[in-house]
C-alpha cells in the first residue's frame, strides 16, 4: 500500500546530484583519524545571500593531518553580477586571465570534489548559505554535508573562563592566536588552507584535553 504523500511525484534531479546524495546513504561515522575533511572558502561579490554571487571557491582536503597539494580545488566562476568595491578584498577582476567556468560547471566539480566529507569553514554559515543559494538557483537541493565552523570551534576549545559566546573571531585573530602563517590571505584557496591549519591546530588542543570526539566537534 502506498501512502498518499509518497505519491507526490519525486522531483527529477540530474545524475550528478543523485550521485552526490547517494554517498550519504550509508555507513556510521568513521573515526576522526580516518575521516576526510574539506576546508573551504568562497570569495563573493558581497554579503547579501540573495543578491551576491560566488566568484571563487577554494578548497583543500585532508585525512589524518596530511594535505595533498594536487588534491586541492580552485574554481573561478563567471558571473554577471560584479561589484567593483569588493575587488580590493579578493582581487578578482571582472576580466582577467583566469580560466573561468559557469556556475553549473562549478557545482558539478564542487560536489564531485567534496563528496561526503566533513566541511570546515570559517564562519561556515555564510559559505553554506551562499552555496545553497547557488544550488537553489539551479533547482538543486541543499548541501548534505556536516559543517564545522572554526570560529565557534575555537571558542569552545578555549578555557571556560575565556569562553564568550559574544566573541567574534576573525580568521586573522585565529592566525595570530594559533600562530598560523598568513599566506595568500583573501584568496579562496589561500584562506581554505589557512582554515585547514587552524582546524588542525584546534584539534591538537582538543586532543590534549581528551575532548577529540565527534559529539564535541558537532554540537554547537
Amino acid at each position: 500500500m502506498k501512502l498518499p504523500w509518497f505519491n507526490k511525484k519525486r522531483k527529477e534531479y540530474p545524475d550528478f546530484w543523485n550521485t552526490y546524495v547517494d554517498k550519504f546513504n550509508k555507513h556510521p561515522k568513521e573515526a576522526i583519524q580516518n575521516t576526510r575533511f574539506v576546508a573551504l572558502d568562497t570569495e563573493t561579490t558581497g554579503f547579501n545571500i540573495k543578491e551576491d554571487r560566488i566568484l571563487s571557491i577554494g578548497a583543500v582536503s585532508f585525512t589524518n593531518k596530511v594535505i595533498q597539494v594536487n588534491k586541492s580545488l580552485e574554481l573561478y566562476l563567471r558571473q554577471a553580477i560584479f561589484k567593483p568595491e569588493t575587488v580590493k578584498i579578493h582581487g578578482l577582476m571582472k576580466h582577467s586571465d583566469l580560466e573561468k567556468i559557469s556556475e553549473l560547471e562549478a557545482i558539478k566539480i564542487f560536489l564531485d570534489y567534496i563528496k561526503d566529507a566533513v566541511l570546515i569553514a570559517h564562519h561556515a554559515n555564510f559559505d553554506r548559505n551562499m552555496i545553497n543559494e547557488m544550488l537553489l538557483r539551479h533547482n538543486l537541493g541543499s548541501l548534505k554535508n556536516t559543517f564545522i565552523d572554526t570560529g565557534s570551534l575555537y571558542n569552545k576549545s578555549k578555557h571556560i573562563i575565556y569562553q564568550n559566546h559574544l566573541n567574534h573571531y576573525t580568521l586573522d585573530d585565529l592566525c595570530r592566536e594559533l600562530n598560523v602563517p598568513k599566506v595568500d590571505r583573501h584568496t579562496a584557496t589561500g584562506d581554505a588552507l589557512i582554515t585547514a591549519f587552524v582546524f588542525l591546530k584546534i584539534l591538537a588542543r582538543l586532543d590534549k584535553k581528551k575532548e577529540l570526539k565527534w559529539d564535541y566537534l558537532l554540537k554547537s
Binding site: V69, N70, S72, E74, L98, E99, T187, T189, L193
Partner: peptide
Amino acid sequence: MKNSIAERVC
C-alpha cells in the same frame, strides 16, 4: 587548472 597552493609551496 590554477593551483595557488602549489605556487606558494614553490
